[in-house]
Design a protein around this nucleic acid. Structure first.
Lengths: 344, 344
DNA sequence: CTTGGCACTCAACGCACACGAGTGCCAAAA
DNA sequence: TTTTGGCACTCGTGTGCGTTGAGTGCCAAG
């Protein structure tokens, strides 16, 4: 990679940057003349043409047909994102708006809902927010409630405010005192612990109870462990699908697979899952594993209620998107959500 | 209305029915010649033309331009749905598939999720399912959990399996015994009662407690009443948005407002809210209050875990849709969901 | 290495024209 | 009175064709 980049002098890079910027703005192939007019590169169109030829040779741009301007390729966008663009910080009013909008949230659901709408609005694209996952969070409280003689409800509350509940059908009648005892012991050991660690801390509990109660205790614990382990049930919230209509000219073809992808939580989760934890990840066009998204880019980043990332959020848009602006918005929103979560 | 219909003899109605059926099938304006060929009306094209002229006069059909075939108007579809079409029952294999697909559900969320996907797939349109609402259901259990000295979590569980939780910030420290007492009294009075009736049954509770605890009790109850009253927070689940791509030829224009509408839960709720409880409701084109949906039809019906409807579900598609088939699917799915809910 | 000039390419546009599906109307038949 | 065949008419769609112009590649001069 370094080898290739070395061959491109500064002006060629500037030309590529200009092409990306113009194309993102106009959505039309950009020619040499228009380029020198709009950006003041101090050279003639002919020179730019030579540079363009070189850039095309290297695979950073290409022309749809002979007598047309150039369009960046995925590789071109990649270089742009990696070397040529700076994340655009949000303006002060924008930051204030974000803050204000998120501050009104009343519970975790509301935080996520507001976040995803905000992100969609800021970027004018499709926004995706993953609920804070169970695996990284810690136990705040575990509650057991007898609903019927042999029916117990188990409620798990995490430090991120997430609540998970399960019904437990017990093998026999459950005494209230036993239940209270179990509840107390579970919380004494598990409170404040990270979810994956909890099973290890509780596995010897049945032995403490009377012989007759052990099946019940075991059943309850089994259900709890199941709830803890079930990372699959990671939920996701979407917004801004209406922005897909601004996708391009060749409509149904591009938009349909995207809509299909958006309906599959599994795909979205995998998409976000590819984000390296802390850093912002940008997947451009064919870099996306899923076929339906080859003409889209995904900008995603982790967010968390402290120094540590507990979930991810991001944006899906056409490869021809305003990368600096989008990345700025994604980063800013992720930060503020983190703060909100830390406060609550 | 009776007056207008009287003017249309049986054959004219048959022509209208044929036009609707053909247009739904082909998506193209249908002419007199094609009509007599495909349906065996025992008359000549010329006769059909006369009937068409009459139908157009009455506003049931119209032609996009002079030398084109006819298209049903909203009014035409309305007549078709009201008088000319029968709800098409599901075939035995279809019914089996529905049953099988819904039977795998493990909890309420899963039931709703499966239902909405199923409905989208069956009708090949956008499906909407409202979560069983709080107002019609009864209290199964109310739980209070002390999370911190002055922080209590309130959990409300309904007979439909829905769980609603709220954090309560109490004015002072809450004693465990007081909390247990309160919990017991609340459940003794509220369990099994319909949600709207609960506040009336509990309002004198603070008076029973010691002076010092009354603020706490009042605060908890206030939060509970709030949760009970908050019908607004009725949730909705969507599926099948990808089916919008099969909407029509004039793409972005039609689809964008629809996507926007689908993102607004409020709009969807109002849409479903217009459904008269038991009966299936069909809103065609401009009959829909919301502007963005004037080129769509909404087929909706209530469903419930017994004889009574607790929530609604439906389908949104182009006015040019297969009404008998769609209505059949909606009705069948609603029935089976009702059964599932009743069982659990 | 840069630049102006120049010939070339090719999508987009406009236009004229023919085609044909579909209509409305009318007079004759039922 | 209703139905039907005939007929002239409308008008959107498709096709072929020349024009336009943005944009290119190449080359020779600066």
């Amino acid at each position: 990679m370094a080898g290739e980049v070395r061959q491109l002098d500064d002006r060629k890079l500037a030309v590529l940057r200009a092409i990306v910027q113009d194309y993102v703005g106009t959505e039309e192939p950009v020619g040499s003349k228009a380029l020198v007019e709009r950006h003041n590169l101090g050279v003639s169109p002919a020179t730019v043409r030579n540079d363009m030829a070189a850039l095309e040779e290297e695979g950073y741009i290409h022309q749809p047909h002979t007598s047309a301007g150039r369009i960046p390729t995925d590789k071109g966008y990649r270089l742009f994102v990696d070397k040529l663009a700076e994340i655009k910080p949000m303006s002060a009013p924008e930051r204030r708006a974000i803050r204000h909008f998120l501050d009104g949230a009343v519970d975790l659901d509301d935080v996520v809902a507001r976040t995803v709408r905000l992100l969609a609005q800021l970027t004018r694209q499709v926004a995706v927010v993953q609920y804070p996952s169970l695996t990284r969070s810690t136990v705040r409280h575990i509650e057991l409630v007898a609903l019927a003689p042999a029916k117990v409800m188990l409620v798990l509350i995490t430090n991120t405010g997430r609540v998970e509940q399960r019904m437990v059908d017990c093998p026999g009648t459950v005494g209230e005192t036993v239940l209270a005892d179990l509840r107390a012991r579970i919380n004494a050991r598990a409170a404040g612990q990270r979810l994956p660690d909890v099973p290890g801390l509780l596995e010897d509990l049945p032995a403490i109870f009377e012989q007759v109660d052990r099946p019940t205790v075991s059943t309850v614990l089994a259900t709890l462990f199941e709830a803890l382990a079930e990372q699959n049930e990671e939920r996701i919230m979407l917004a801004g699908t209406a922005n897909l209509t601004r996708f391009g000219h060749d409509f149904p073809l591009t938009i349909q697979p995207v809509l299909e992808a958006l309906e599959e939580q599994v795909i979205l989760l995998r998409l976000l899952g590819e984000t390296t934890d802390a850093a912002m990840t940008v997947r451009i066009g064919r870099e996306n594993a899923y076929e339906g998204l080859i003409s889209t880019s995904v900008v995603s980043v982790g967010y968390g209620s402290g120094d540590e990332s507990v979930a991810k959020l991001g944006v899906i848009g056409p490869t021809r998107m305003d990368y600096p602006g989008t990345m700025g918005a994604v980063r800013a929103v992720a930060r503020y959500v983190g703060q909100i979560l830390a406060e609550s």
